[in-house]
Structures are given as structure tokens and as C-alpha cells.
């Protein structure tokens, strides 16, 4: 590569570098700064230490996000697989269908679930009128304002982020590899565990990342579908920054986000160990 093209390359990456600096590096630096200072700007560890009292909230957030991620994975893998085995024309349509809900505003989609799950909502009303037709007394299911509703909201909103990376990886797997495995006497189960699954690990990992991270830090889903009955860590961070509880405290809010960020980074780091050949096969987020 000669000097000119290097300069050109640098010039072309400049916009992104500036973008990164303003909207990624500076905010993270600010989070770090606030997390380790008090209201007067002098160094303190008390913000980080005060987070211990929110441990149960961290656990609930991680638990719900974890369940949502697992459900997403179970739903997404078979779907991604069957899409990847379709004709190219059909694949396009299916991917479009997966993306379709994302064209609508996130909030509106979540509000829609609210009216579906309510005690007087779509599901309960239909079930009630159907069952009373046959003379059964039906009280209706309590669905809205439960942790289950929050998980449902997470799964619904983030499922496409699980399907797409797995699908991308699966389409790259050469069909002849599967044929070869079958030729060599592998049954369906063995083909899946020994050939397909190992090769799709990068997609699974980036899918898990893309679902788990937004799910663990969400606050609007818990507010709308959880009815404010379950606090997730995102809710507490929001409160500290907006002062909804009557106390604006950027420092504790930043410390909470920092700890969440570190927790996510650590879990991503551990998970990437399962993906030993991510560097060679590509498709992973890291």
C-alpha cells in the first residue's frame, strides 16, 4: 500500500472517528468521571460502593434478561435454520417478515401488548366470551403487570436481533459439508451437534449479545408491561438521572450504569471463550 492510498483511507475513516469520539468515547468518559466523583467533583468510591444495596435489582434484571435470551434462542434457531434452507427468493421474503415489526415504533409495539394482555384485554375477552358460550365460568388470566409480561415484551421486541445473525451464519455453511457428514454415516442428531451447531456458534453469540444487552438495561418495557411493579436496573438509572424520585444524582446513576457495563463486558468476555474460532470464521460481533 503506498502513502497516498493510506492517506485516503485515513481521510475516509475520519467521519466515523469523529463520530466515535463525540458520541461514544466522550459519553463513556463522562460516565467514568461521574461514577468516581461526588457532587462537588472530588474523587470518591462511595457511588460504586452504594450499589451493593441494588444487588437484588441487578439479579432480577439479569434473571429476566437471561430467560428472555434463552427463549429467543430456542425460538430463533429453528426458524433461522429453516429460512436458511429455503429458496433464495423465499429467504428474502422471510427475512423481510422477520424485520417487518421493527418498522413500527418500539413504544407503539409495546403499548399494543399492553392492550392485548390486560385483564379486559384482547386475549382475556376472547377467552371469556368463548368459554361462557359453553357455560364455563372464567376469571381470566392475570398476565399484564407480571414478570412474565416483561419477559414476553423483551422476547417480542428483540427476537429479530437473534434470528438475523444466526440466519446469516447458517446461510454461509456449505450444504456439501452436511452431505459429507451424512455420507460418512452421521445421523440427523449428529449432523446437528457435530457440524451445524459448532459452525453457527459465532452467530449464536452475537445474537445472545444483541438480545441480552438491550434486555438487561431496558426500562420502558418494565414500566409499560410490568406496570411499575418490578424495578429493573434501567428504571433505577433513569430515576437517578431524571430525578423522578425527587433526587437527581448523576453520580450514583453513572456508577450504576458503569457496573452494568462491566458486568456485561465480563459475561461477553467469558462467552467469547466458547467461540474459539470467531476470528477465523467471522460473523461474530467481537
Amino acid at each position: 500500500m503506498n502513502k497516498n492510498s493510506k492517506g485516503l483511507q485515513r481521510a475516509m475513516t475520519a467521519p466515523f472517528t469523529v463520530w466515535m469520539a463525540i458520541f461514544i468515547i466522550i459519553p463513556i468518559a463522562l460516565v467514568l468521571f461521574y461514577a468516581f466523583t461526588d457532587a462537588n467533583g472530588s474523587f470518591t468510591l462511595s457511588n460504586i460502593l452504594s450499589i451493593w444495596e441494588y444487588k437484588s435489582t441487578y439479579i432480577v434484571s439479569i434473571e429476566l434478561a437471561f430467560v428472555a435470551t434463552i427463549i429467543c434462542l430456542i425460538l430463533a434457531y429453528p426458524l433461522a435454520y429453516s429460512i436458511s434452507r429455503m429458496k433464495a427468493r423465499h429467504q428474502q421474503t422471510m427475512v423481510l417478515l422477520v424485520m417487518l415489526p421493527m418498522w413500527m415504533n418500539f413504544l407503539i409495539r409495546t403499548y399494543a401488548w399492553m392492550t392485548i394482555l390486560e385483564d379486559t384485554g384482547l386475549i382475556n375477552t376472547l377467552l371469556k366470551s368463548f368459554l361462557t358460550l359453553f357455560g364455563y365460568e372464567f376469571e381470566g388470566f392475570a398476565m399484564i403487570n407480571t414478570n412474565g409480561a416483561i419477559v414476553l415484551g423483551m422476547v417480542y421486541n428483540f427476537l429479530p436481533y437473534m434470528i438475523l445473525p444466526i440466519y446469516t451464519v447458517l446461510t454461509k455453511i456449505d450444504k456439501s459439508v452436511i452431505e459429507a457428514a451424512k455420507d460418512l454415516g452421521a445421523n440427523g442428531f449428529n449432523v446437528f451437534t457435530k457440524v451445524l451447531l459448532p459452525q453457527s456458534v459465532p452467530g449464536i453469540i452475537s445474537g445472545i449479545t444483541m438480545v441480552f444487552v438491550p434486555a438487561v438495561s431496558t426500562f420502558i418495557i418494565s414500566k409499560l408491561l410490568g406496570g411499575g411493579m418490578t424495578y429493573l436496573i434501567g428504571d433505577i438509572i433513569e430515576n437517578y438521572f431524571l430525578g423522578n424520585t425527587g433526587e437527581v444524582n448523576y453520580n450514583v446513576g453513572a456508577a450504576l450504569s458503569l457496573v452494568l457495563m462491566v458486568l456485561i463486558l465480563i459475561s461477553m468476555g467469558i462467552m467469547n471463550r466458547f467461540d474459539k474460532d470467531a476470528e477465523t470464521s467471522g460473523g461474530g460481533l467481537f
Binding site: 438521572f241 431524571l242 430525578g243 423522578n244 424520585t245 425527587g246 437527581v248
Partner: peptide
Amino acid sequence: DSNEAMYS
């Protein structure tokens, strides 16, 4: 939507 939000 709240006094506190406005204040912050």
C-alpha cells in the same frame, strides 16, 4: 410529565 423531570 413531572415536576422532577422538568427540574432535572
